Computed example of a mutant assay.
Amino acid sequence: MEKEIINKVANSKLEVFDLEDYFPKEEIVSLDISQWLYEGFILREKDFRENLKAFDWSQFSGKGVTLFCSTDAILPAWTFALITSYLFPYAKQIVHGNKLNYLLVHYTSALSLIDFSVYQGIPLILKGCSKKDVPQEIYTLAIQKICPFAKSIMFGEACSAVPLFKAK
C-alpha cells in the first residue's frame, strides 16, 4: 500500500506576502521637460509658460508620470511644481525622477496602508519570484513592516524559501 502524499505547506499556517499584488496597475510614462527649454537648456519663463499652456496634457489621463530633464539645465525650484500643476488633473500619480523613483513612492504609499498586524505570530513567506519588476528597495521596506508581527519570515517560494527572520 502506497502512502498518501500530504501537502504540508497547504496545511500549514504559512502565509505568502506577494509584493507583486501591490505593483502599480497604471502605465508609467516619462516626461522630459527639456522639450520646453530654449535649446534644451534655458528656461525662458514667458515661452515656457506658453508651451505648457499649449501642450495636450490629456494624453496622461490615468497614467503614472515621471518628470525629468535630460539636459544639464539649471532650473528654478518652481519648474517641476508648475508642470505638476498642469499634469495633476490628468495623471494618477506624478513623481520627479525615473521609474524606480515612481515605484518607491508608489510602494511606500501602498505599504503604509496595510495592516500588518494580521500577520501577528504567523510564519510568512515574502514572495521573491515575481513576473513584474519589483525593486529590491521595496523588499527592504516590506521586511521592516512585517518583522514586528510575523513569527518567522522566509524569502522566495514555499518549495525553496530562504530563512530571513525568526521572532525571539
Rank of each mutant, 00 (worst) to 15 (best):
I83G: 00
E26A: 11
D133C: 06
E45L: 11
R44V: 13
F149R: 04
D72A: 12
E2A: 10
Y102F: 15
F55V: 10
I125Y: 03
Y139C: 03
S152E: 08
E2Q: 09
L37I: 06
D18C: 09
A167E: 03
L113N: 14
I153W: 00
L52V: 12
S109P: 06
K132V: 04
F80M: 11
E26S: 10
I114M: 10
A77L: 13
P24N: 05
Y119N: 01
S85Q: 07
K46L: 10
D21N: 15
E137K: 09
K168C: 06
L82S: 07
C147G: 01
A91T: 09
G64F: 03
A167C: 00
A54M: 12
G128A: 04
G128Y: 01
V118A: 11
L113W: 09
I5V: 15
C147Q: 13
T71S: 12
V16I: 13
P76L: 03
G156E: 01
D32S: 07
S61Q: 15
K53V: 08
Q93K: 10
A81T: 14
L124P: 01
I28S: 07
S117D: 01
F116S: 01
K99Q: 11
L75T: 11
I28V: 13
W78L: 08
K132D: 03
A158L: 02
V95E: 02
V65L: 06
E27G: 02
D115H: 10
S61A: 14
V29Y: 01
N101T: 06
K92Y: 03
L124H: 02
A150P: 02
S70G: 14
H106G: 02
S34L: 04
C147M: 12
Y119E: 02
P148A: 08
V118G: 06
I114T: 09
